[in-house]
Amino acid sequence: MRSIICTAAAIAMLALCGLEGAHAQVRAKAGVTCKPGTEKLQYDCIIKLANSKTNEPLSGLTLTVGADMPSMPAAHNVRPVGAAEDQEKGTYKARIVLEMYGDWALRLDLSGPVRDRVVKRLRFERDRVGETTPARAPGRHRH
């Protein structure tokens, strides 16, 4: 049994060592604006992707949009949907359907020429979508 565990541990360590690779060059940043759609819990989002260093729009990518509810990790998440690229460079459109109203972390997964993930936290309400307002520590409010 000990030898099995040692072998398994060795495989896990090898897997970990094998995961070191070349560093990616481009990091993405995203601006996300969403508005309620025609149906309940449906939202239409416009996502603007750009190179975080040069601010150049990132186009020609495959973008999927998923959502997780931070207060319930791994419990409430939305199946990722594909985003269609708009005519404007670096602009994508996606329609998501959430499970409930509240704070959601939108997970933007980029693949293709640039592979990256950007997470944006938004508050989805019945009639509007806005920034989340996390509970701040006393004396550390931002104005």
């Binding site: 070191e20 070349a22 560093h23 990616a24 990256d116 996390p134 701040r136």
Partner: peptide, 15 residues
């Protein structure tokens, strides 16, 4: 703080 910890990008930086 409450805004969380983003950009733990190890898996992306290392392909």
């Amino acid at each position: 703080g409450a805004d969380g910890f983003r950009n733990i990008r190890y898996i992306f930086d290392n392909n």
